[in-house]
């Protein structure tokens, strides 16, 4: 366990010293703060604008950060041969993946906390305080980012950063539109039952990221929005996070299996 923690700490330390990630983060914080100005342009809708833009910005940039850090995570180690010094140390290969992933989780948590802090300050500048609904929305986004990170790390164990980035972006795209895909499959292909079940199964393999961004859509037959009274409950957040954790664990297990069999040439 100590060794996994050592690798995680090192991953965190490397990530916060990485210029590219820092630049993206500063840019994201700037945009979130700029929602204050955009809010002023709207008539009496300042709070709604700040909350929507803030959440949208955090959703987008947390994924950008997760993908950029995730797709490089293992690939860079092999490419730069930094791995050569570690594999011969008394660790198992899977521990390396666990440590790296945990390091990214800590990094991403810190980055999202910072962005959330900027959003909270922007709201305070508008004489409003972050409420429970906003916190629940943020926790969901955090859970989603951890799933995306796991997917990016998975691709990074066997493919180049560019391809991994494209694959991960594709998975995010499909994962975010699962209800639409589902509707499409049922409406268009109802006459070909074999194909429909196959496609249904295929969509099950992709993470249902729609679960994590629910403001402005139907949940359980009810319209929810983060700006109104009855947003999703904490038990919904717990359920979705549980699903995310399970999905991430499965993807990481696959990543470890691939990593354990690789030649590091």
């Amino acid at each position: 366990m100590n060794r996994v923690v050592a690798i995680a700490i090192n991953t965190f330390r490397e990530a916060i010293r990485e210029k590219l990630l820092a630049v993206i983060l500063v840019f994201a914080c700037g945009l979130i703060a700029a929602s204050f100005g955009v809010g002023k342009l709207s008539l009496h809708e300042e709070l709604r604008v700040i909350r929507d833009l803030g959440l949208g910005g955090i959703s987008l940039f947390s994924k950008v950060l997760a993908v950029v850090a995730g797709v490089n995570l293992v690939y860079k180690e092999i490419e730069r041969k930094t791995l050569y010094a570690f594999i011969p140390k008394p660790i198992h290969r899977w521990q390396f993946i666990v440590g790296k992933y945990l390091g990214l989780v800590v990094t991403l948590t810190a980055q999202m906390a910072l962005m959330s802090g900027v959003l909270a300050l922007t709201l305070l500048a508008q004489d409003a305080a972050p409420d429970g609904a906003l916190v629940r929305a943020l926790v969901l986004l955090w859970a989603e980012a951890l799933v995306v990170t796991a997917v990016a790390v998975f691709f990074s164990t066997f493919s180049t950063p560019l391809l991994s980035g494209i694959f991960t972006a594709g998975i995010i795209g499909i994962g975010r539109s699962t209800p639409e895909l589902h509707a499409l499959i049922t409406s268009q292909l109802k006459d070909v039952p074999g194909l429909q079940t196959t496609l249904d199964w295929a969509t099950q393999l992709v993470p249902d990221l729609h679960l994590f961004y629910v403001s402005g859509s139907m949940v359980g037959g009810k319209w929810v929005t983060v700006n109104a009274g009855d947003f999703i409950s904490w038990s919904y957040v717990a359920g979705a996070s549980g699903y995310g954790a399970l999905y991430a664990a499965c993807v990481l297990a696959l990543a470890m299996a691939i990593f354990a069999r690789r030649d590091f040439v």
């Binding site: 090192n10 330390r13 490397e14 010293r17 990485e18 730069r80 041969k81 930094t82 050569y84 010094a85 011969p88």
Partner: peptide, 12 residues
């Protein structure tokens, strides 16, 4: 073990 090409983490 000393690898042939000892490249380590550049930020450390």
């Amino acid at each position: 073990f000393l690898p042939e090409t000892p490249y380590f983490y550049e930020h450390l």
